[in-house]
Simulated scan of single mutants.
Amino acid sequence: MSEAAERLAEVQANIAGAAARARRRAKDICLIAVSKTHDAATIRPLIATGQRHFGENRVQEAAAKWPELRAETPDVVLHLIGQLQSNKADEAVALFDAIHSLDRSSLVQAVAKACQKAGKQLQLFVQVNIGDEEQKGGCAVADLPALLAEAKAAGLTIEGLMAIPPADIEPAPYFALLDELAERNGLPLRSMGMSGDYETAVMLGATHVRVGTALFGTRA
């Protein structure tokens, strides 16, 4: 068994275990392999094991490697999980299948225009600044209903919420809050949990987990 296959099998087993403890079905949880900073040669072994959902932080980096990889494996699903500048909306909509980081009015409007122009509907998440951290992207919890209403008025279908809890603090209360916010706003999807805490996230309602290090190893 290849190293990539072993890592993938371990993460999948951990997700299945956490789902079972929460009386959920493992098949309802989407594992996104975070391939940012990794080149095509590093990504290919994971694709070969059957992994199909991948996450990137930057439009420019994704544009440099994914067109070739997707030509080889057309059923790959690409998620933008990093911050997006409004002026990159057209490029992002053309390249990605899902955007997890809608967080402000100007970006909602830019993505709505780009989707309309491209005739394409993406899977969309609003990122919530769940820990109220000044340095972190995301919509303030108090501003969430207004942003969701604006997105709907602009013709966008928001399917879920995304969050990154504060570092070095127990993440469970933040995951529980995101789950509650999604429930309150009638949204079915929750993008939460990374390599260090994805099992906790699954137990608290995550439908999408974003795992990099546990699949690719520590970045150089």
Results as ranks from 00 to 15, higher is better:
69 L>P: 09
69 L>D: 03
69 L>W: 04
69 L>E: 05
70 R>G: 13
70 R>T: 14
71 A>C: 11
72 E>W: 06
72 E>T: 10
72 E>G: 12
73 T>A: 14
73 T>R: 07
73 T>L: 00
73 T>I: 06
73 T>N: 01
74 P>R: 02
75 D>E: 15
75 D>G: 08
76 V>L: 15
76 V>E: 00
77 V>M: 04
78 L>Q: 09
78 L>K: 04
78 L>F: 02
78 L>R: 05
78 L>V: 01
78 L>P: 04
80 L>C: 00
80 L>G: 00
81 I>M: 13
81 I>P: 08
82 G>I: 01
82 G>P: 09
82 G>S: 04
82 G>K: 05
83 Q>L: 01
83 Q>A: 06
84 L>S: 00
85 Q>A: 11
85 Q>V: 02
86 S>Y: 00
88 K>W: 09
88 K>C: 00
88 K>E: 03
88 K>I: 05
89 A>T: 10
89 A>N: 05
90 D>E: 15
90 D>A: 15
91 E>F: 11
93 V>H: 09
93 V>W: 08
93 V>S: 10
93 V>F: 14
93 V>Q: 13
93 V>D: 08
94 A>D: 13
95 L>K: 06
95 L>I: 01
96 F>H: 08
96 F>T: 07
97 D>L: 15
97 D>T: 15
97 D>I: 14
97 D>W: 12
98 A>N: 08
98 A>E: 13
98 A>C: 14
99 I>D: 08
99 I>N: 07
100 H>R: 11
100 H>Y: 13
103 D>M: 12
103 D>E: 09
103 D>Q: 04
105 S>M: 12
106 S>G: 14
106 S>P: 04
107 L>R: 11
108 V>T: 05
108 V>K: 08
108 V>E: 06
109 Q>G: 02
109 Q>D: 08
109 Q>C: 01
110 A>G: 13
111 V>F: 05
111 V>E: 06
111 V>Q: 12
111 V>G: 02
111 V>I: 08
112 A>L: 01
112 A>C: 10
113 K>C: 01
114 A>E: 00
114 A>D: 12
114 A>H: 03
115 C>I: 00
115 C>E: 11
116 Q>Y: 10
116 Q>K: 15
118 A>T: 05
118 A>P: 03
118 A>H: 12
118 A>D: 10
119 G>H: 09
120 K>D: 12
120 K>F: 07
120 K>M: 05
120 K>G: 03
121 Q>T: 14
123 Q>E: 01
124 L>M: 07
126 V>H: 02
126 V>G: 12
126 V>C: 15
126 V>Y: 14
127 Q>L: 11
128 V>I: 03
128 V>S: 02
128 V>N: 12
129 N>Q: 10
129 N>I: 02
130 I>P: 02
131 G>C: 11
